[in-house]
């Protein structure tokens, strides 16, 4: 039985006026490639932000590597996190090498490690380039190199292909497959690209504030009825929530009442 890497138990979280996550529970084990799907505003990023201690006001329990994340933040050293590239300020005066070196803060720093991480993502010769000179796909690879340089056990990716071209996307998918299959790295990846999830992931979780499905990719995608009901139901829920948000504030769950 592979080791349990992630355990999310009955997690709920609310921002100012509405609930973003409601009693979400799932587990991921060593070597899993878990795709998280759901419409915009489904709470995928909120879930990651809770798992990464950015948001601590959640209800429920999150354990990573067997430890409650509220007790100790040392587990973060074992995680590589790749945010959406659109959140990066490309005018920032920093080189590829400097960004990758951020991944080694608080760890043993060597130039060789940085160079080999840059090489691994196929950016040889770009070490001294400023990030503003890179394409969306190249910037994405820099962030991957930053996450990989410390050799993490768990890789969390938040819609990583939103701002990149098709060619870069394919290279990126090959790299993820290699990390998961050859290094047995556990990967949790949120995406709107259902085809990519079907091709790469072995497990899938469909969320829209609540968890609608969690299980094997085959079980989800080969059963059209199940897929349609989970995905459509979750999308329908999104529509209903937005409807209530606009027209009837009384229907919104008070996060303080959690």
């Amino acid at each position: 039985m592979p080791a349990e890497i992630v355990s999310v138990e009955n997690v709920s979280f609310g921002y100012d006026s509405s609930l973003s996550l409601e009693n979400v529970s799932f587990k991921a084990y060593e070597g899993d490639f878990l795709g998280i799907i759901g419409p915009n505003g489904a709470g995928k990023t909120t879930l990651f932000r809770c798992m990464l201690r950015v948001l601590l006001g959640y209800k429920g329990t999150i354990k990573l590597f067997g430890q409650d994340i509220r007790d100790d933040k040392n587990y973060l050293k074992r995680i590589g996190y790749i945010p959406q590239t659109r959140s990066i300020e490309q005018g920032f005066p920093v080189t590829v090498e400097e960004v990758v070196s951020f991944g080694l803060i608080g760890r043993k720093y060597t130039k060789d490690k940085i160079s080999s991480a840059i090489e691994e993502v196929g950016l040889i010769g770009h070490n001294k380039k400023r990030i503003g000179e890179l394409s969306g796909g190249q910037l994405q690879r820099v962030l991957i190199a930053k996450s990989l340089v410390a050799d993490p056990d768990l890789l969390i990716l938040d819609e990583p292909t939103t701002a990149i071209d098709m060619e870069s996307e394919n290279k990126f998918y090959s790299l993820l497959t290699e990390l998961n299959k050859e290094r047995r790295m556990t990967i949790i990846w949120s995406s709107h690209d259902l085809d990519a999830i079907k091709k790469l992931a072995d497990k899938v979780a469909c969320i829209n504030k609540r968890l609608f499905f969690h299980g094997n990719v085959g079980e989800f995608f080969n059963n059209e009825k199940l897929m349609m009901s989970a995905y459509l139901e979750s999308s329908m829920q999104a529509h209903m929530h937005s409807h209530f948000d606009v027209n009837n504030n009384d229907k919104i769950v008070d996060p303080d009442g959690l």
Partner: peptide
Amino acid sequence: YVTFDEEQASVGG
């Protein structure tokens, strides 16, 4: 790192 991206720096421990 914090100046570059506070959230990533926080996730970096």
